[in-house]
């Protein structure tokens, strides 16, 4: 569906001279320095995948998305989406995709939602019965009914996002790009949007690529994660692999009957102790099953639980750069 090879996008940023004379100089000589927003990224995405495209602010996520949607022309590299080069065959390309760029609406600001949807139907030449069918489905999933006749400018953020999602999918695109689809929404609204994305992906086989800062989105939606930083690919693989590879291991929380003395267990270290409760970190490749019997050896254990590494924590550590050096070395 999508293949990206050695994608590069450079922006020229101009240094400005200061002061009034500087303004005149700016017209004549401009000192440019080049920012490598995307710096040699490659990946493939198969039809029907639901991929989270992650990275810290300024990592190049939106730039990649904008190249894939045909908005930006890359500096170098190869991109094929459904066999087309997005920026060269723009109209054919965008006819087959839907896109929602988080904070901006694709709807007509001052008019009721339904008018926008109706116009989009004509722009994408959606047959009337298919349009009605889709509208009914989206209404069932997103509960659009209550605000279809409300002007877009008066919608709440959550309502607007729902309307935008419906608008992006009216023409049955094979491919859906979502840039921060849940930003600024409350818990209930987030759940509803996630449920919708999952449904569209599973039931229609729509390929979905989403960028987000909300790792709840990733955990609940994405099986695969592509992560970039400073324009370079840092990770591409299953969410589970990411957790295993970069997580600092699982944590075992044990409640003993009496406060235990110092524990010395192979493959686990004590990271915290409060009265008779102890937190043990199991080494990334270690086994919980191997440790548990050792616990029962000397003391009575009242309760025991295993905490998986939080994806939040994993991603934070990657963003902070702790693990990149290890990977590179």
């Amino acid at each position: 569906m999508i293949s990206v090879v050695a994608l590069k996008k450079e922006f020229r940023v101009y240094r400005h001279h200061r002061g009034a004379l500087g303004a005149v100089r700016n017209l004549v000589t401009r000192e440019a320095h080049v920012v490598h927003a995307v710096d040699g990224v490659s990946f493939r995405i198969a039809p029907g995948e639901l991929v989270g495209y992650l990275g810290p602010n300024g990592a190049g996520k939106s730039t990649t998305l904008k190249i894939l949607t045909g908005i930006l022309v890359p500096t170098d590299g190869e991109v094929r989406v459904a066999g087309r080069v997005p920026w060269l065959q723009r109209t054919e390309h965008v006819r087959g995709l839907g896109a929602v760029f988080g904070q901006r609406t694709g709807l007509w600001w001052d008019l009721p939602v339904i008018e926008s949807l109706d116009l989009l139907r004509h722009i994408y030449r959606v047959p009337a019965d298919r349009y009605r069918q889709n509208l009914r489905l989206f209404d069932a999933l997103l509960d659009l009914g209550p605000f279809l006749d409300t002007p877009v400018r008066s919608l709440s953020l959550g309502q607007r996002m729902r309307a935008d999602l419906a608008a992006a999918l009216l023409h049955d695109p094979m491919l859906l790009f979502l840039d921060e689809p849940t930003i600024g929404l409350d818990v209930v609204a987030k759940e509803r949007i996630r449920g919708f994305i999952r449904a569209i992906n599973r039931e229609r086989g729509t390929t979905v690529i989403l960028t987000t800062h909300d790792l709840g989105d990733v955990e609940k939606l994405c099986e695969r994660v592509i992560m970039i930083d400073h324009g370079r690919l840092v990770f591409d693989g299953a969410l589970e692999t990411l957790r295993q590879r970069f997580g600092e291991g699982r944590v075992l929380v044990v409640d003993f009957e009496t406060p235990p003395g110092p524990l010395s267990l192979p493959g686990a270290e004590t990271i915290r102790q409060e009265a008779n409760r102890v937190w043990l970190r199991v080494a990334a490749h270690g086994s919980v099953a191997g440790i548990v019997p050792l616990l029962f050896r000397d003391q009575r254990v009242l309760d025991l639980s295993v905490q998986e590494p939080e994806i939040e924590e994993v991603v934070r550590r990657i963003y902070e750069g702790h693990l990149l050096a290890d990977e590179a070395g």
Binding site: I71, E92, I123, Y124
Partner: peptide, 13 residues
């Protein structure tokens, strides 16, 4: 404002 993005996302000249 980046509004031109929206133009490029629609299948019309």
């Amino acid at each position: 404002r980046g509004d031109f993005d929206r133009v490029l996302l629609r299948p019309l000249p």
